[in-house]
């Protein structure tokens, strides 16, 4: 079976660990060999949070530089920073909503304009799907649903052998009832954006 190496990158609190875990659950439900890796601990105090999902005939739980098939970035600066994981065939899915780090506020460096980051990413990756995931999450009335939007965009991109049906099944069994409807809506809207 074909191997797919996915890297999720985000900022503490954006929910990318949950997204990668749910993707792993969906793969397991389809009997696709999978391993997910996460970083816990100090890295979560407002820092960068990276996770990886590997599908298919592969046992290594992490993705080396230049070896990602898909990069899913929850924040544009962090997508740009993580481009080292990509090669010329990588598909990049990125949120366009900026979360400037506090270092910028105290004058240590400038936050690159989002359009400039996107231009740089587009100039290097094979395909870039850029969407304002936070705006979609706000629109469905659930600001925490960014990770659902990004999962939707990933499934919509058609880059991995996991369909919307299987993914939604996992979302339905692992989401609190109060959030289920908005989560599924966020997922669908993310998927539409990627199509």
């Amino acid at each position: 079976m074909e191997t797919k190496r996915l890297v999720f990158i985000g900022v503490g609190g954006q929910g990318n660990l949950l997204a990668s875990r749910l993707l792993g659950e969906a793969a397991l439900s389809m009997k696709i060999p999978t391993v997910v890796s996460e970083i816990h601990g100090m890295a979560q105090r407002g820092g960068i949070v990276e996770s990886a999902v590997l599908l298919g005939d592969v046992t290594s739980p992490i993705v080396s530089n230049a070896e990602a098939d898909v990069l899913i970035g929850f924040e544009p600066l962090e997508t740009l920073r993580a481009l080292g994981k990509c090669n010329k065939d990588t598909v990049v899915i990125t949120n366009t909503h900026a979360l400037p780090p506090f270092t910028v506020a105290i004058g240590q460096g400038a936050y690159p304009p989002v359009e400039e980051s996107l231009r740089l990413i587009r100039s290097k990756a094979k395909k870039v799907i850029a969407l304002d995931g936070n705006a979609i999450a706000e629109a469905v009335g659930n600001p925490l649903a960014l990770n659902m939007v990004m999962l939707g965009a990933l499934i919509g991109s058609g880059t991995i052998p996991i369909g919307a049906k299987e993914m939604k099944k996992v979302l339905s069994t692992s989401t609190k009832k109060a959030f289920l409807e908005s989560n599924l809506k966020a997922f669908d809207m993310g998927m539409e954006k990627a199509n």
């Binding site: 960068i48 481009l83 090669n87 270092t103 400038a110």
Partner: peptide, 22 residues
């Protein structure tokens, strides 16, 4: 043939995002 790294020479210096007190 190893995977080819992207040319990152035109990426500007990016501001750091160290962990921080909440």
């Amino acid at each position: 043939t190893p995977y080819e790294m992207l040319d990152m020479s035109d990426i500007p210096q990016l501001p750091g995002r160290p962990p921080n007190l909440c």
